[in-house]
Design a protein around this nucleic acid. Sequence first.
DNA 1: GAGTGGTCTAGACCACTTG
DNA 2: AAGTGGTCTAGACCACTCT
Lengths: 231, 231
Amino acid sequence: MPSEAMGWQQVRDAVMARIRDRSYPPGALIPNEAHLAVEFGCARTTVNRALRALADAGFLDRRRKGGTRVTAAPIRKAVLPIGILRHEVEARGAAYSFDLVRREIAVPPSEVAEVMRADPARPMLNLITLHRADGRPVAREERWVDHSTVPAIMEADLTAISVNEWLVRNAPYTHGTLTFAAEPAGTRAALLGCAPGDSLLVMTRTTWMDADPITHVRQFHPPGHALTLQM
Amino acid sequence: MPSEAMGWQQVRDAVMARIRDRSYPPGALIPNEAHLAVEFGCARTTVNRALRALADAGFLDRRRKGGTRVTAAPIRKAVLPIGILRHEVEARGAAYSFDLVRREIAVPPSEVAEVMRADPARPMLNLITLHRADGRPVAREERWVDHSTVPAIMEADLTAISVNEWLVRNAPYTHGTLTFAAEPAGTRAALLGCAPGDSLLVMTRTTWMDADPITHVRQFHPPGHALTLQM
DNA sequence: GAGTGGTCTAGACCACTTG
DNA sequence: AAGTGGTCTAGACCACTCT
């Protein structure tokens, strides 16, 4: 029995503790909000906030009238922050630099236009960038930008600020897809300073502003540059 | 001017629209909660919930007394759901099956004990599993389980339920790390039905219950089995 | 010191879902 | 029909932090 009124985070922790020690076993219905509010000596709103947090985290399933159940096979979530590559490198204490290897206007390959859901005949801006940490390559970036969606990019000096950073700062997107895969380095080995038989981690992103494609980018990471997330 | 009172999601969308069209430009201070409550004709609590959602999504920075600012370089987040592999396969409409290739008790390699922060002399349960979708290999899983943390696993029939699923259902974890990398298939090619020179996507996870290590697992995905997330 | 967001309350009404 | 969570309100107090 709590001696003091509890805040929502304390209620959340108390309920989480019961899930952990199986006082609330997987699949079981837990008491309703009004009941818990009385038990914890707080308002129902406070209980609601606590249970909502646990539901968002995947530990509870809530349904109107059906009540709140402990998730039987909780789906845990790992969060991958997508930001500016320069900041990630600098956060690891390394010096960031980059080279703009190519900048040209061209009609993209049909498979690129397809995943971007763009007119296959429309020319786009094609950019290849090499990102480095303390001089060592950490990513080769092959990018297409639809400059009919983001016309301002034609004026940007992409040797002074990386495309990556320019887009994050100037071209918000509404949604996108992200894919992880692995590929042999092949001819990309030279620029990345690895062997052609080495495996590269490939992160592919495609983003849109509503229905308009913004960019399609593939980042190739050399061996030794793994991507780590906390759970 | 809104003709009707607004719910928190409408307030969120209205503010988001102003961020998008730069009525609230990057880095700028936006009006405080009380002001917006008057403008939108709702309670401050409602505005608070809306702005909190946008702050959680990374579009706003909020500080007591400092007010609320539009994030200059928003860090977008991609969410990777970690659940039961069987469910993921079945969700794609394929038939799931698996083989337990190895099950034995052994002292793990020192680097495994190290990342698990476990006693390097303590034996653990070593399991190798092949996961299939419609008969085709989708992942080779190499796992170590600390059965001093999860003793019940010694009684489990891991040929009837995969270790993966057993652990999700029976061994909740408090935290963990997740790493993506790429590796040549090498000798793993045989089991996965690919060539030794092919590149594999490797997902490594290590989980703990408080300070006690639970499991360390590496899942090797053959070419063609990419991992896709929505943003 | 003062202004901001963070949280709590008590009550109310609503939306949804189940029996 | 009825029970549950989802949300809104009006007001209040508090915690933080900027000046």
